[in-house]
Design a protein around this nucleic acid. Structure first.
Length: 441
RNA sequence: GGAGGAGUGGCCGAGCGGUCGAAGGCGGCGGAUUUGAAAUCCGUUGUAGGGGCGACUCUACCGGGGGUUCGAAUCCCUCCUCCUCCGCCA
């Protein structure tokens, strides 16, 4: 959420910045400006009425004879004053509700250094790591490889849960588990993150804190979705969302808190299953496990002082990238253009891993710096030093990494002519010594 | 699911319907004392919004919301959360 005061006082700049990311509703911003002005005037008048009432009320307390005519007269006058205050308060609640609705639907402002652009085609390649693996044969895609090795089962997943689900089996399941362990181990013991195992069902306030709500409700799975179910008395207390990413519960760790400046930066890593409805992605990546309703991910979350944000983003991106490097997976880093960034981000890097069967780089991690955008929604603050006033934190997060897509990349990049897949060396200990998933004869 | 109990400032804990933003303690910060530290003493210490260049000032906030009242931390209603016991359960 943007700062109301900042937006009201800098309308032209805000319009220009939002335009860069394709937000063209200038009228909405003008309306916000008018409402903000109205609110300010209203507050001034209501407060002076309240002051008048407070002073008069105190005088009332000093009148000993509560039945006297003067007391009665004053009381009647104050009753009218009280009504007037109430009307003003009601109006204020209305205005602030409208303002909040607008603010909750405004995306973050891209940093000035974020490149212009409308879509992912305009993203800027920052660096490429490793070489494209070359095969002496036509590389197959992970669906083919996984099905043949008996480690991925899409048919049975569809039977049980529908489309866009996958079942991992045998060494495939083990690989998934090994990756989770490996990533968490690296981030905790080498990168200094504190490990967190959070709930995967969260309240709407948490979803609002990190900006999945209110704008992207269609993308999330919600418990108590239909009205009939919701109407049941038993359903109360279960209005929860399945997390689309561990970012939600982990970032909200410090919602409504004031942390000590001396504790910053804070760094957390955690694994969760992630659930996404993939609304509006019909026909996109329907094959395989690139885009499924449920996947596993290890997430990195950092909290810092505003002035640390820029550096922290580089650090966090490096931590995510280190996983790809240790796994020996060819990939590149791109900086997202203004038009391709997520709603809450003010600057983002994507890590894209090479998928030979698609002859393309595909996103495997997105690392973002949100400024105080999420912190304002969450009321997550820090005290710069013990005497100072609290300030909004800056938040960052990134996948470290999406495990499903990592499995895909390993299968595709490490496939052998005989149909086997080699296990990256760093994972072998986590695989109980298994060095390759053998071909089925 | 059943039965009880409780929600006050960073924490603990008082609080007659009216000078209560709220006693006291702890913690934090500043200072005195000390060679240094501990102990002790003194002072200070919430958040948000509005106005003012500023010193400053006004308003709101005692789990959330609503109500009664001239006036609510204090009375009423309601919701939420937490704790204890019983039942069920991985």
């Amino acid at each position: 959420m943007l700062d109301l005061r900042y937006v009201s006082e800098n309308l032209p700049e805000v319009k220009a910045a939002l335009l860069r990311r394709g937000f063209t509703d200038a009228e909405l911003l003008d309306r916000l400006g008018r409402l903000s002005e109205e609110r300010r005037n209203l507050i001034a008048s209501v407060e002076s009425l309240r002051q008048e009432r407070n002073e008069a009320s105190q005088a009332m307390a000093k009148i000993s004879d509560k039945t006297s005519e003067t007391f009665q007269a004053k009381r009647d006058r104050l009753r009218a004053l009280g009504d007037e205050i109430k009307r003003g308060e009601t109006k204020q609640v209305e205005l602030e509700g409208e303002l909040e609705t607008i603010l909750l639907n405004l995306p973050n402002l891209p940093r000035p250094d974020v490149p212009d652009g409308r879509s992912e085609r305009d993203n800027v390649e920052v660096r490429v790591w490793g070489d494209q693996p070359s095969f002496g044969f036509q590389p197959r895609d992970h669906v083919e490889i996984g099905s043949q090795l008996g480690i991925l089962d899409f048919e049975r997943a569809a039977k049980i849960s529908g489309s866009r689900f996958v079942i991992l089996k045998g060494l495939g399941s083990r690989l998934n588990r090994a990756l989770m362990q490996f990533m968490l181990d690296v981030h905790t013991s080498e990168h200094g993150y504190e490990e967190v195992w959070p709930p995967v069902l969260v309240k709407d306030s948490a979803m609002r804190g990190t900006s999945q709500l209110p704008k992207f409700a269609k993308d999330a799975f919600r418990i108590a979705k239909d009205e009939e179910w919701e109407a049941q008395a038993d359903a109360r207390g279960h209005d929860l969302y399945l997390v689309p990413t561990a970012e939600v519960p982990i970032t909200n760790l410090h919602a409504d808190e004031i942390v000590a400046g001396s504790d910053l930066p804070l760094a957390y890593t955690g694994y969760t299953a992630c659930f996404r409805s993939e609304a509006g992605s019909y026909g996109k990546d329907t094959r395989g496990m690139i885009r499924v309703h449920q996947f596993d991910k290890v997430e990195l979350v950092r909290f810092c002082r505003p002035e640390q944000g820029e550096t922290q983003l580089e650090i966090l991106t490096g931590h995510a990238e280190a996983i790809l490097q240790k796994l020996g997976l060819h990939h590149r880093v791109v900086e997202l253009c203004a038009g391709d960034m997520g709603f809450a981000a003010q600057k983002s890097y994507d890590l894209e891993v090479w998928l030979p069967a698609q002859n393309a780089y595909r996103e495997i991690s997105s690392c973002s710096w949100f400024g105080d955008f999420q912190a304002r929604r969450m009321k997550a603050r820090f005290r710069p030093d013990p005497k100072a006033k609290p300030q909004l934190l800056h938040t960052l997060n990134g996948s470290g990494l999406a495990i499903g897509r990592t499995v895909v990349a390993i299968l595709e990049q490490n496939q052998q002519a005989d149909g086997a897949v080699t296990i990256p060396e760093v994972l072998v200990p986590y695989m109980g010594g298994v060095e390759r998933i053998p071909p089925v004869s």
